[in-house]
Computed example of a mutant assay.
Amino acid sequence: MKKSLNLNKFAENGTLSIFVNSEQEPMGILIPLKQWSKIAPSVDKNCELHRLMEQLTFKPIFERSLKEQENWLCPEIEQVETANLQQGLYNIYQDDKYCTSKDLFIHQYTDHRELVKVDAETGHTQTIKRNF
């Protein structure tokens, strides 16, 4: 007699499930793809499971929402920003509090920040405020 298993009920509730044999011994685990993003940080990135799940759950960047893109890129951006500061460079960004016009930017150094005004035509920068 063949036994069948309807995976639709597992997919609907989206939770991890353990498969057991007739003696109730664990035989395997069903990991819904929706759950992978929560589990992934605790799984070794070099193991076969991680590589397989990344392939199955990969979504090209242009198919992602803006929030998904931000979440996906944020760790990489943070690494680059940290490397910049360690190399004596600075990071540039804008915020709503200090950058009240499109030509104002913040230069973030390891030990201070500067509010600068940039001339779009010449690229010349003028420091407006330091250590704020």
Rank of each mutant, 00 (worst) to 15 (best):
H112G: 07
D96W: 05
H50W: 02
F105Y: 10
S42G: 03
L7D: 08
L33M: 06
L16C: 15
E78Q: 11
V116E: 08
Q108I: 10
V43T: 13
E76M: 13
S42M: 03
S22F: 08
C99W: 00
E114F: 05
H107C: 11
E114V: 08
Y98K: 00
S101K: 02
D96G: 10
P26F: 02
T122D: 12
V20M: 08
Q55D: 07
G88F: 12
S17C: 13
N71L: 15
H124G: 09
H124F: 14
S65A: 13
N91Y: 05
E23H: 11
Q87R: 08
D95T: 00
D96E: 13
L104F: 04
K9H: 14
N13I: 13
I29Y: 03
R64V: 07
G123Y: 10
T100N: 09
L66I: 09
L115K: 02
K97Q: 08
S17P: 05
E70I: 04
L56C: 10
H107N: 10
E54P: 00
Q86P: 06
L85V: 07
K59D: 09
W72H: 09
R64I: 02
C47G: 04
P60D: 08
F105S: 06
D96H: 07
T82L: 12
G123K: 08
G28A: 12
Y109P: 03
K34A: 08
E12H: 09
I106F: 02
H50Q: 01
L73K: 14
L5I: 15
L56W: 02
K67M: 09
S37N: 07
C74N: 13
W36Q: 03
D111L: 05
V20E: 09
Q24W: 03
F10S: 03
F105A: 04
L49W: 05
P32T: 01
L73P: 14
Q86V: 04
F105V: 09
I61H: 06
G28H: 01
G88E: 07
E63N: 12
A120D: 15
I106A: 07
T110Y: 04
E81Y: 13
Q126P: 10
M53C: 06
E76V: 11
I77V: 15
T122I: 02
M1Q: 15
E63T: 10
E23Q: 01
E48P: 01
K38A: 08
M1W: 10
K45W: 02
T110W: 02
P60I: 05
E25H: 07
R51P: 00
F19Q: 03
A11F: 15
T57M: 07
Q94W: 00
T82N: 06
C47Y: 12
N21K: 04
D103L: 12
R51D: 03
A83S: 08
Y90Q: 05
E121V: 11
C47T: 06
H112Q: 09
I18L: 11
G28W: 03
L52P: 03
T110N: 09
E76P: 07
G14Q: 15
I77K: 13
K97P: 04
E76G: 03
P60W: 00
T100I: 13
V20L: 04
G88C: 01
K2F: 07
H50K: 07
Q69Y: 01
L49G: 05
W72K: 14
F58C: 06
K38W: 01
P75F: 03
F19G: 06
L85C: 10
H124V: 14
C47A: 04
